[in-house]
């Protein structure tokens, strides 16, 4: 009796992996293109940016917050990197021109992303603006800054080195997949093994108890939002590289896919509960679903409807499970 209960409980833990497997099996029957090596790398490459952003989103949501600005921050960081790489910095008064290496330009983009995230963190902790509102404002601000920086036009022609980040292969694996794997690994270690990670879970679980235990709530939140900004920037660099151009409207709506991945991955929106690997599974589910529906020639309009229902299903199953406990 208790044995079967244990087994169902254990199964419940792996529900998203099971859902993934079922999706893969069904799709491999429906489409002979699905279970091919090319398609697998294709899916992985497509989801890598969402995985990277969603790792940051997971950290933010674990503290009980939300970050709606990831898409705009991604666009600005991509544009800054592209601009630095292509045009450098020119100071005509001093007759000075500074060029940037690829590495320097990428650092610049990531620094911009981290700074915008830090700004989010400051408005949320110092001025007590609710995260939803603070990052909604940043969504608009960063998009506007992107338009200002690019003048509304794409920045193109970034060179082969830059293109390698988004389209190259290394040891038989696409670069974006390497980067996202590295980010995931680092985040898993961060959440499971470090003091900061523990504090993130504690604050999301019970902020009052955390404060009474001497945790520095504001500091942790500012770090988390900065990380989310930096990770969005990395996503922006990858996308810019893949398209060989920084599009001013890149990343529109990415915050929604990212939140969807986190939620499907089992992270609670009220904070304190969830894992990075869950989010990766969530991103995989969304990615495979998109891919499968495309392969099956389902209209993109239907794809959105299906994705919405999958999000609902994931949360309903989660609620039913926690009720059973």
């Amino acid at each position: 009796m208790t044995n079967t209960k244990n087994i169902t409980n254990k199964l419940a833990k792996f529900q998203s992996i099971i859902a993934l497997l079922i999706m893969c099996i069904v799709l491999s029957f429906l489409s002979d293109k699905f279970m091919t090596g090319d398609n697998a790398w294709n899916v992985m490459r497509q989801i890598s940016v969402n995985v990277i952003i969603s790792v940051g989103m997971t950290l933010v949501i674990l503290t009980g917050g939300i970050d709606l600005s990831v898409g705009s921050v991604l666009a600005l960081a991509g544009a800054v990197t592209a601009g630095m790489l292509k045009f450098g910095a020119e100071f005509s008064d001093a007759n000075l021109y500074i060029g940037f290496t690829l590495f320097g330009a990428m650092l610049g983009g990531i620094a911009v992303g981290a700074f915008l995230g830090w700004f989010n963190g400051i408005t949320i902790t110092r001025f007590k603006v609710p995260p939803f509102v603070a990052t909604l404002a940043m969504l608009t601000i960063a998009r506007g800054l992107t338009m200002l920086w690019t003048g509304g036009f794409p920045i193109t022609g970034l060179g082969d080195n830059m293109a390698f980040i988004g389209t190259g292969w290394f040891l038989g694996i696409p670069m974006p997949v390497w980067i996202s794997a590295f980010v995931v690994l680092a985040a898993v270690v961060l959440t499971k093994k470090t003091k900061l990670g523990r504090h993130i879970y504690a604050i999301g679980g019970n902020e009052t108890a955390s404060r009474l235990s001497g945790l520095k709530i504001s500091k942790v939140k500012i770090i988390v939002y900065s990380l989310a900004g930096a990770l969005s920037a990395i996503g922006g660099i990858i996308i810019t590289s893949r398209l060989d151009s920084a599009q001013p409207n890149a990343g529109m709506g990415f915050e929604l896919d990212s939140i969807a991945a986190v939620v499907i991955g089992g992270t609670s929106l009220s904070g304190g509960k969830g894992t990075i690997l869950g989010t990766v599974q969530g991103a995989l589910i969304i990615g495979i679903l998109n891919n499968g529906l495309v392969l099956l020639n389902v209209s993109p309009f239907w794809q959105q409807v299906v994705k919405g229902f999958i999000i609902l299903l994931a949360v309903v199953v989660e609620k039913l499970n926690s009720k059973k406990e």
Partner: peptide, 9 residues
């Protein structure tokens, strides 16, 4: 419960 513990830890 409110001030002492992180209940889901």
């Amino acid at each position: 419960k409110l001030q002492g513990l992180i209940l889901n830890m």
